[in-house]
Write a protein that binds this DNA or RNA. Structure first.
Lengths: 172, 172
DNA sequence: GCCAGGGCTGCGGAATCCGCAGATCTCACT
DNA sequence: AGTGAGATCTGCGGATTCCGCAGCCCTGGC
């Protein structure tokens, strides 16, 4: 059981080296396994994770810290905003003329905007907005988003009910 | 400083009593503050949270456990799927005839569907899909979603770039 | 008035976290 | 080849945290 552990470790080394070439740092199998563990339970002890992925407690700790520092993952509490007092949410589809990315950056800077993604299809950008009430939502969409230079049009989808919200990819 | 702590604690008691009337268990100010702490760092020690919200370590622990048990929040690692090997993501807008909720439930049961929300606007449902490649994505949309009885039409938005993804509401 | 239930505190033992030193491996450069 | 820098893993204490439990307080119902 000792030899195979060593073998797999050296394999990981190779993977992590190769990966650092790409701009998006690829992840080796061990880091993926660690992330998977933390997707099941963000507070799982490092020792338990180490046992599951075949690493020492300290090594897991160092890897997790690095993943957090690099921004590859974040360990956070997630809720349904509706149960936490934010009464109005909406997805907004946006069409842009000119530089899409600069508009996306402007949206990113807004506190009420939780989620920004550039897309292919009949919208250039999809943005999710979390607000306290209708007035707040209206204000963000009409006064702030539509006011951005380059925004050609927007279409809103007000949330009625959140049915599913998971973070378990890789677990399947 | 002692008296005010006691005062605020009894106030919370009232809040939590009132709230349990509603079907969606409302949260008192202290639980919100705890969630807020854990939205900043899902691994923050209970003692540190207790100091921040004015509760003992044990009380925070009990509240967190309850919030998890009730499903009000989950503490998990979240990533950008693109960096974790899922090459294709899309948001799908769906129009339904008949019972919207049953369609939403069917989507919820699909492993590739990460996010389902019922909306007002030109779609009845928005669903986010996470796949490994184009074939997989095509299969889910055309073979599985469109095959659901009651789905009238779908429109897809393939993700090009994730710009923002936060879980910090309440922190502002 | 009294009891049941929920929530908080304080406490002690077990488990976990955390920093550090040393070992190993790889890669680049001479 | 040889060497040195860099990255990663392991092992080990000491400090911190987690966890279950007993006791107390407050509230609401009988």
């Amino acid at each position: 059981m000792h030899s195979e552990a060593v073998a797999s470790r050296s394999a990981e080394h190779r993977d992590s080296r190769e990966s650092r070439n790409g701009s998006t740092p690829h992840l080796d199998a061990v880091s993926l396994a660690i992330i998977q563990q933390l997707q099941e339970d963000g507070r799982r002890p490092y020792a338990a994770i180490g046992k599951a992925v075949g690493l020492s407690e300290a090594a897991v700790r160092q890897r997790v810290q690095k993943l957090l520092d690099q921004g590859v993952m974040q360990i956070v509490a997630v809720t349904d905003p509706l149960t936490v007092g934010f009464r109005r949410q909406a997805m907004v589809g946006i069409n842009v003329e000119g530089d899409v990315e600069s508009i996306a950056d402007a949206l990113t800077d807004m506190a009420e905007v939780e989620y920004v993604v550039m897309t292919a299809g009949s919208y250039d950008i999809l943005a999710e907005i979390v607000c306290e009430d209708d007035d707040h939502l209206l204000d963000v969409i009409n006064k702030r988003i539509r006011a951005l230079p380059g925004v050609r049009s927007t279409e809103s989808f007000v949330y009625l009910k959140l049915k599913k919200q998971t973070y378990m990819w890789g677990t399947r």
